[in-house]
């Protein structure tokens, strides 16, 4: 049972699945993006790159790309700021807290995105919890516009991506030799010095990996911008959706999707480079591609 031919046979269904449902359709999508127009469900007209040049030169579209990238960057920074302390805490916590803390850290991922989006509507709405609290406290007399804004997108997406950042950082922290901190303490370093000079530098590969994966999840998220964001195309993904479902500009929408795919794949490639440089071998490398929940969830 150990022969390469057996391996081929065992792998065949998986390869067929990926070719039929992923490789072929994505190829079809890219082919679609190179045609001038469409007739019915088929691409039609001559071959052209005009959709790509339109996407990359029109200031309206460039504006949306810019906003998307800016929001994704803010989300990534927030995820590091919130994720590092939690990962550090989980790392130091006694073993019996591990289970509950893991469930806490991963809960944004386990709870349906539709559910948490609804939760943000209840919290951020004009008559929502936060506005009620602010008005009750006399901080504001009219409700602040928190929902259906870029602020809401950033909040909702930071929530969704946080588990990936925490897991990345925690994995790096767990590779740190505990003797290092002890040695630092013996040599007279206080907790803050140990954090700055030992722990943080060694956690950096984890932060780097988390940053790339979180960024790629954020830019390809659809549900959060669609539900929590301002109306109209407010994010690259909602722009793509609009091209397909409302404007029926399929070749152009396909070109936008191909551009998004290219950016996401580039970031994931960087992520894998970072991980292999961080020296995470074997298991680490396939944990790596966890990112996927990326698309899958958000």
């Amino acid at each position: 049972m150990r022969r390469p031919r057996t391996a081929l046979l065992l792998l065949l269904p998986a390869v067929i699945l990926i070719v039929v449902v992923l490789v072929l359709p994505v190829g079809w999508l890219i082919r679609f993006s190179l045609f001038e127009g469409q007739s019915g469900v088929q691409a039609a007209g001559g071959l052209t790159l005009e959709h790509y040049s339109r996407a990359l030169t029109d200031s309206f579209f460039l504006g949306i790309f810019g906003r998307t990238i800016l929001m994704a960057l803010i989300i990534t920074v927030l995820a590091v700021a919130l994720g590092y302390p939690l990962a550090h805490f989980m790392w130091k916590a006694p073993a019996r807290w591990r289970g509950p803390l893991t469930i806490l850290a991963l809960s944004p991922l386990l709870v349906s995105i539709v559910v948490s989006s609804y939760g943000w509507i209840v919290l951020l709405g004009n008559r929502g919890t936060i506005n009620s609290l602010l008005m009750w406290a006399g901080i504001t007399s009219t409700p602040l516009r928190l929902m259906y804004s870029e602020f809401a997108i950033v909040v909702g997406l930071t929530h969704i991506v946080l588990p990936f950042m925490v897991l990345s950082i925690l994995a790096a922290l767990e590779r740190i030799d505990p003797l290092l901190a002890e040695a630092a303490a013996t040599l007279g370093a206080d907790a803050r010095r140990t954090l700055w000079h030992i722990t943080l530098p060694l956690a950096l590969p984890g932060i780097g990996a988390g940053t790339t994966i979180v960024f790629s999840i954020a830019i390809s998220a659809y549900v959060t911008p669609a539900v929590l964001g301002p109306s109209g195309p407010n994010f690259i993904t909602t722009l793509i959706y609009q091209q397909f479902t409302m404007l029926f500009e399929w070749p152009f929408g396909a070109a936008l999707a191909a551009l998004l795919l290219a950016v996401a794949m580039t970031v994931v490639f960087l992520y894998m480079r970072l991980l292999s440089r961080a020296g995470a071998l074997g298991a680490g490398r396939h944990d790596a591609r966890a990112g996927g929940r990326a698309g899958a969830q958000a």
């Binding site: 792998l11 998986a14 390869v15 990926i18 449902v21 992923l22 072929l24 359709p25 994505v26 190829g27 079809w28 999508l29 679609f32 469900v41 088929q42 691409a43 790629s216 390809s220 659809y222 993904t237 793509i240 959706y241 397909f244 399929w250 929408g253 396909a254 999707a257 998004l260 795919l261 996401a264 794949m265 994931v268 396939h286 591609r289 966890a290 990112g291 996927g292 929940r293 990326a294 698309g295 899958a296």
Partner: peptide, 26 residues
Amino acid sequence: LQTFLLAPLVVPSIVIGLAVLLAFSG
């Protein structure tokens, strides 16, 4: 091959959804 098997995780799912819709209906 292992990377190939995990590829569905790295393609944004909005791209997968669109691609499958276009290709299958086409």
